[in-house]
Design a protein around this nucleic acid. Structure first.
Lengths: 243, 243
DNA sequence: CGACGCTTTGACACAACTCAACAACCGTGG
DNA sequence: CCACGGTTGTTGAGTTGTGTCAAAGCGTCG
């Protein structure tokens, strides 16, 4: 994984699960062959909309969310480069959440039949894709736990730890620093807080010399301190039972 | 679906998705052929434990949860009769949450290879299983939204609406009433509240003539009122794009 | 009967929200 | 080059939803 250049973030991510053959890497590349440029703010999927396709994010940031009747928004996750959205729900008739681009982005759409075909003909690629989506689901669960049982400070710290790990997996973060286009309003909607409280929490994290969020960049000052505060455990990035 | 007697809750649930042939129903029954009786309180899977198998709940109630370093618990979902746990994470080396029986229960264990075999040889059954798990995942997402953006009253109301719908799907609830062995401590850990506040919320629901929870039984007095309060929308129980 | 598990209630504390400003930043256009 | 508006960040004061602590009521079961 060190020196090799991957064609896509997805290929890089999957490779940390199982080493793919050139042939299989070709399949992964092919899934993303018809990529489209998307403008920041564009809605990619609306809740309730007809479904039957998955989306692969080639670059940029997005957010999947639900809107409440009173207009409040809960962000479920921030898909980043290399993430696949909607794989699991390809069987459901309608999408259960909305998806918007937070920055300019490139996306590829994969229709259900094509995906099923890959799963059949390239089981190892399929397994890797399923591994990646399982991982994403595990993060949704962790997010739920976070909102349910961590206070604002722990929750925020945990969120950034997780984000850092995800970004690292696709080569977008070092152990101390990464770019992050999320403003405090967006963070608030993800963390289940008010934007103002997010501000106070970020200040605390800064004053405790744990991390700094400024102008689109996150800097980690004290990784172990953050992990301790958040009760964060690194995800299982290891090999699977199969293969 | 009306008069037919199904051998299992799972068969009944899947049948509401696609009508299964007798042959396929046999497959579903076979998956549950080696069922085991489990005592209330028994832990079925521990977080971090080696995985590679799914569990089908034949009867009884369970809860899947995570424990925080300080001992707090967040319940993610309450598997009931007909639910499959751990299907998606069969590829992950370790389980990402714990699972305990809340009541005496019967469970069947399905090893990964067997499940993959079914998915291959009986794609329609496989699709139905994937539909069911997708549905469960959508509920986890909704649960996240609930904790993040609904207040205690709305959240509780929403929880019971969802529960009622799930129980109905396996024939364990009428539109106005169902058995429910969840006490206020357990509810609290699911709703991200304190047990005492759950009590206050339940009182409010009672005083507003919306619903009553008493001695293991839930009675819905005003369904539309509850839905309005909770912002609840029935899940898509309809047919899929495939088949 | 006593013990235990669960529910109910009250008084109080505190985390997080709301409202209301203001400050810093940034790209745009005069 | 500076003035400008829009977006984002920062701060303070006061409110409120929910948590904590403490205690009592109530069934059920041994």
């Amino acid at each position: 994984m060190e020196e090799a250049k991957f064609e896509s973030a997805l290929a890089r991510k999957l490779s940390s699960f199982i080493k793919l053959t050139p042939d299989e890497l070709g399949v992964v590349a092919d899934l993303q062959s018809k990529s489209v440029k998307i403008k920041r703010g564009k809605e990619l999927t609306a809740e309730g909309q007809a479904n039957g396709r998955a989306i692969i994010l080639g670059s940029g940031w997005a957010c999947s969310y639900k809107i409440m009747p009173d207009g409040a928004r809960q962000i479920i996750t921030f898909p980043i480069a290399g993430d696949c959205v909607g794989v699991r729900s390809i069987l459901l008739r309608t999408s259960d959440h909305s998806l918007s681009a937070l920055t300019d982005a490139t996306v590829s759409t994969v229709e259900a039949p094509r995906l099923l075909q890959v799963l059949n003909e390239h089981p190892r690629v399929g397994a890797a894709l399923m591994w990646a989506t399982s991982r994403d689901e595990a993060m949704v669960v962790e997010h739920l736990v976070s909102i349910g049982r961590r206070n604002a400070l722990e929750r925020t710290a945990h969120f950034f730890m997780e984000l850092a790990e995800r970004l690292t997996l696709v080569g977008l973060a070092t152990s101390t620093e990464f770019k992050c286009p999320l403003n405090q309003y967006v963070l608030a909607d993800a963390l289940g807080l008010s934007a103002i409280h997010v501000n106070r929490v970020l200040r605390q994290l800064r004053e405790r010399d744990l991390m700094t969020v400024k102008s689109g960049k996150v800097i980690i000052h004290d990784l172990s301190g953050l992990c301790a505060l958040a009760g964060y455990h690194k995800m299982d990035g290891g090999r699977t039972a199969i293969e």
